[in-house]
Each structure stands twice: as structure tokens, then as C-alpha cells.
Amino acid sequence: MDLLKKSLSNAINNILRNKLINFLCLGIISFTLLTLGIFNYISYNLEIFTHNFSKNIEAIFYFKNDVKEKEIKAQISKIRKSLLVDEVIYKSRDEAETSFLSQFPELKYILTEFDKSPFPSSIEIKFKQEESNLTTKIISFIEDIEGSDIIESKQVNIDWAKKVLYIKKFISITGIFLSGILFFVSVFIIYNVIKLNIIYRKEEINILQLVGATDWYIKFPFIIEGALMGLLGGIIAGILLIILIKLIPSYSDFIINILKDIISLKKIPLKILIRLLFFGTIIGLISSLFSLKKFFKK
């Protein structure tokens, strides 16, 4: 506990001692984490959008004409077993004809030419609205049913959701890629800042080694320093992200008005902020450990 307290106070002193270099370093970590945060936030909003969209997804599957009733029943019971499905409504060929006639009575004469109902039997599926990642699962579920031999065609209002999912995927990959590059830049910079601090305190470290300090006793303050710098970077990035989200509606009314119907910007969820703090600390820890490893190897 004493060592932790001492290391923490040493770390704060070091950060304040080399203000310019440490603040520059903090700026870069914050920028990295802010980028990560922005992409995370956009991705989160698109996820919510696709989830909301999934509430309205309905799928109608039309059976081939020669399909036996037994096969249809088997297919329906298979679909009902899925956890995604809320309701399955079966419409026989006759029911389809009746429904057609009730909607378009003036077209009754067309049907007089047919002995049997010309409409295919179908099932209408309504989906549950509970799970967060429902859309992806629904899409793959629908594709599964479509692959069945007894299905002739389908009618699904899911293309929009599919497109949004692609955009979300693209944004996530771009975010990970950019954050990855910035992550390495941050690690490199903290690594060098810690290295400078080690060189600055080389004499002190040498004295500590000569009087019998363990390696860990010497390393700990630097590790804390790196972690603290990362954590501070995370806090700054979080604050900047909150401010940014608040500022967007006031400065880009036009764009927001266009997007408003599609995506409504939500409050930043706590998990994104925690993620920023976590990644910041990890960046700091990794960098300081690398720096120390190199120094203590000598």
C-alpha cells in the first residue's frame, strides 16, 4: 500500500515535472482514444437503429405448388422452434384466394378461369423484439428458410437493415484499423516519454539498485506513471466525446435533420466510456512495460 501511494505520488510529480512532453503525450493518447470512442459511438447508434428496425421485420414465404401438406407442417413446426420467432401464420391456397377476393372483389372474374386457387400457400413470420443483435440473426434465419426445397419465393422488408449492417461493419473495421494505427503511435510515444523519465532519473535508479532495491521497487512507479497517463488520456477522451456529441446538434442542424428520422443520437453509454478508460490504461501499461524491459535488460 505504501509502495502504491509512493509510486502514485512519484508518477504525478514526474508528469508535472516534464509538463510539455507529458501533456503532448496526453494529447496524443486522448486523440487516439477519442477516435476509438467516436467510431464506437457511431457503431453503437447504428446497432440501435438496426435493432429498432428489426421490430418491424416480417417475412412471407411462398411454398411451391406441388408441396405436400405434411412437408409444410414440418417446416412450420421447425420455424416455431426458433427463439427468434414470435408468431407464424399459415395461409392455405384457399385462404389466400378468399383473402384476395376480400381485398379485390372487382377482380373476381379472373379467378373464374381457374379450377383450383391459383395462389400459393404461404407462411407469414413475425419476429420477437428482445435480443440486441437480432437483425443479423434474423437475416441468417431467413436465408436458412429460403434455402429449403419447398420454398418458391419470399417477401421480406430487410434490405434496408442489411445495408445498415454493412455500413456498421465498415465503420467498425475502419474504426479498428484507425484506432490500431493510433494505438501503436500512442504506445511508441508513451514508450519514449517513460524512457526519457528513466534517463532523467538514471542517477536515482542507480542509487536505488546499489542500496539493494528490488527491480520491482524501481519499476513500479514508472508502471504507475504509464498507466496513469493512459487513464488520464481516457478521461480526457471521454470528456471530449461527451462535449462533441453535445455540440454536433447545435452546429450541424442541417445534417442532423436529415439523419434524425434514420438515426437519433443517443446518450453515450457508460460501456463506451469505461472502454476508453480501460484502453487508455492498457496503452499506458504496455508502453511503460516495454520501456522498462529495454532499460533493465542493459
Partner: peptide, 12 residues
Amino acid sequence: KKLYKLRRKIGI
């Protein structure tokens, strides 16, 4: 890693 044990025996 164990060098500190030696250094603790010696005053320099």
C-alpha cells in the same frame, strides 16, 4: 533478479 540480496550485505 536476486542481486539486491548481495547489495543489501554491502554498504558502498
